[in-house]
């Protein structure tokens, strides 16, 4: 996929990437610095199709420990990558997976229970879904090869690995200078 962006497009897409990274990173840092946070009650109260699985995890001290660590560091690393435009493609994919888990813990399918952790009114579409959609947009319009550290990593050795797990080869040729 060869992409050619106008300056305006590159700026707005980069802003979108950075604000999503900002959100992930802040959430992760808050949980890390706050110390007392645990996903237990979030999972215990979950509704929807995955609730039995989430509740089973919440019953186990060991599982909760790993989930907490993975969640906090997942948020921090995905946030940093989006912010800096580093390993953008895997970061977007993992971000979508993480957000989908949040979404399906409290799917807003007209159930009152879904409002447990929400501070608004939602039906099918909630903030998690909007953020997922935004990451999907960014997946179609990558920017890190221009306004991110990926620009310097066109030949980084793990690229092939990431390309394999995230789909087709990314041809991020620079736009020829006029």
């Amino acid at each position: 996929m060869e992409t050619k962006y106008s300056s305006r497009q590159i700026i707005t897409l980069t802003v979108l990437r950075v604000v999503i990274g900002w959100h992930f990173l802040y959430e992760g840092m808050f949980k890390y610095i706050g110390g007392v946070w645990s996903s237990r009650s979030f999972l215990l109260n979950s509704t929807g199709p995955l609730a039995p699985l989430f509740k089973m995890w919440a019953q186990s001290d060991k599982a909760i420990h790993y989930i907490d660590v993975l969640n906090i560091w997942g948020l921090i690393l995905i946030g940093l990558c989006l912010f800096l435009g580093l390993f953008e493609r895997p970061a977007k994919l993992l971000g979508i997976i993480l957000l989908s888990l949040y979404y399906f813990a409290y799917p807003p399918f007209s159930s009152a229970a879904a409002e447990f952790y929400a501070d608004g009114n939602y039906w099918i579409v909630d903030r998690n879904l909007i953020e997922i959609a935004s990451l999907l947009v960014l997946a179609s319009f990558p920017t890190s090869y221009r306004t991110g550290l990926d620009r310097f990593m066109t030949n980084y050795p793990v690229r092939g690995f990431f390309n394999n797990i995230t789909g087709g080869r990314l041809k991020n040729k620079l736009i020829p200078k006029k």
Binding site: T14, L25, M29, F83, L84, R146, T147
Partner: peptide, 28 residues
């Protein structure tokens, strides 16, 4: 120019990390 564009978000992250940590501690 290529170099500057590539690192364009790094200074924002620098400012962000100071500001966000301060804010988290204040909220807590």
């Amino acid at each position: 120019r290529d170099f500057l564009m590539g690192i364009s978000t790094v200074p924002i992250l620098g400012a962000y990390s100071i500001g966000s940590t301060k804010n988290i501690l204040k909220v807590l």
